[in-house]
């Protein structure tokens, strides 16, 4: 019992440190606000006529895009989860953590948790901006809560990928290169930007397996006003499964890298 509470406390304090970094970087928070404004304001305007194409699932492109922007912002944030380990390694802080009696698994887990919390905050900011731009949230407050939760689950999983990579690639340059190589295709082969029914067949089939789609789809259903419990359940279970899998892989790889 004492062991478990210690592990939970370790995870929390690793996370607490990352959250302190998050709040300490005012520019980063500002960019978190500006970026969705640009995505929603500019892209939403540019593509507003896309809704006229037959088969487009929403009446307003902004409403359609909001879940996509939430997913994208979450992925970009999560992708850099591993970067903090690379920096900790480089500046000697990782050794300080490892020389203390904290459980090894709490380091990747705490960092993943902080990525998820940050994604939650970012998602709320995006929702507020979307509201200001006149986007309707079809399922109301509860729907928004579920959307934020889904974004956090997605982030947990993606930051697990990033942390796994950081255990193998130990320099920031190589990690950046691989992360950049992965994030854009991950977004563009999902349903974040365009509906799958308007994609070429091959792309649509990739999109249906892309984990990002499992997050965007329920968010989009919610914003368009449908509580489709069956589909929601399947997506959330898939996301949780993916998250758990990535947590396990990330912790195993991390443990191996510091052994």
């Amino acid at each position: 019992m004492k062991r478990l509470t210690n592990i939970l406390s370790d995870i929390w304090y690793v996370c607490w440190r990352e959250m302190k970094h998050f709040w300490g970087q005012k520019v980063r928070i500002l960019m978190n606000i500006i970026q969705p404004v640009i995505w929603l304001g500019l892209m939403g305007n540019m593509f507003s006529n896309i809704t006229a194409i037959p088969g487009f699932p929403a009446k307003s492109y902004l409403q359609f895009m909001t879940p996509g922007v939430i997913a994208m912002t979450s992925i970009f944030g999560a992708a850099f989860g591993g970067m903090s380990i690379v920096f900790d390694r480089r500046f000697g802080y990782l050794n300080k953590l490892l020389a203390s009696p904290i459980s090894r698994v709490s380091i990747p887990m705490g960092k993943m948790l902080s990525s998820a919390l940050q994604a939650g905050i970012q998602s709320i900011i995006i929702v507020l901006i979307a509201l200001a731009l006149g986007v309707k949230f079809g399922t109301g407050f509860t729907g928004v809560l579920v959307m934020v939760l889904v974004a956090m689950l997605l982030t947990l999983a993606i930051s697990g990928i990033s942390l796994s990579l950081s255990a193998v690639l130990k320099t920031q340059e190589s990690l950046m290169a691989v992360v950049n190589f992965l994030t854009m295709p991950l977004i563009f082969t999902s349903n974040a930007m365009f509906p799958t029914n308007m994609m070429p067949k091959w792309l649509a089939s990739i999109a249906s397996y892309n984990p990002v789609s499992f997050a965007v789809e329920p968010m989009r259903n919610l914003i368009l006003g449908s509580w489709n419990w069956g589909a929601l359940g399947v997506d959330i279970v898939a996301l949780i499964g993916f998250g758990v899998l990535m947590t396990i892989i990330a912790t195993l790889l991390f443990r191996r890298s510091v052994a």
């Binding site: 440190r17 000697g92 050794n95 300080k96």
Partner: peptide
């Protein structure tokens, strides 16, 4: 353990 890296967190 105090390493030679001066491993304090400057954001805290």
């Amino acid at each position: 353990y105090v390493s030679q890296d001066i491993a304090v967190d400057e954001y805290l």
